[in-house]
């Protein structure tokens, strides 16, 4: 059994009622697949850092559950079937006290949807490095 956190973003134009219906549906998927739902939160409408499927905002929903690994693929399949789910991310949470040596999972998220986007972001960044290195470094000082 593993702990998972799953976040999905719902299209903001969806009415509150439909959004809640969708959340209940996703909870149902998790429960039916044999997972124990530990927490579920609706973070409300938040601004997206970048445009996703033509949307600038989205309703963030957070699920936290304990289950076997198969549940994740089941849940993500349901996300993909739903047109109003803009984006989702499921990660495995490190157990606080694992019985054996902790596996190095932190570097390997269970699912990074649209991996291509990650690559694109990096490429863009790299391309800009020479342009403003000095300035950036100066500004980047923490605290």
């Amino acid at each position: 059994m593993q702990l998972y956190e799953s976040i999905f973003i719902v299209r903001p134009s969806l009415s509150d009622e439909d959004t809640n219906k969708l959340i209940e549906k996703m909870k149902g998927v998790v429960a039916k697949a044999g997972a124990t739902l530990l927490k579920s939160e609706n973070w409300g409408k938040k601004k997206l850092a970048y445009e996703v499927k033509r949307e600038r905002k989205g309703t963030f929903v957070y699920l936290h559950f304990r289950s076997e690994g198969g549940v994740v693929s089941e849940l993500e399949r349901s996300y993909r079937l739903e047109d109003s789910v803009l984006k989702f991310l499921t990660v495995r949470v490190e157990q606080v006290a694992p019985p054996q040596a902790a596996p190095p999972t932190a570097a390997a998220p269970t699912a990074a949807p649209e991996a291509g986007e990650v690559d694109r972001g990096r490429a863009v960044d790299r391309g800009r490095v020479p342009v403003d290195r000095g300035r950036e470094v100066d500004r980047g000082r923490v605290q």
């Binding site: 850092a49 984006k87 649209e114």
Partner: peptide, 13 residues
């Protein structure tokens, strides 16, 4: 940070 980027909470650029 990379996870936050993936879920659009933080931007890539």
């Amino acid at each position: 940070i990379k996870r936050a980027r993936t879920i659009a909470m933080v931007g890539y650029a």
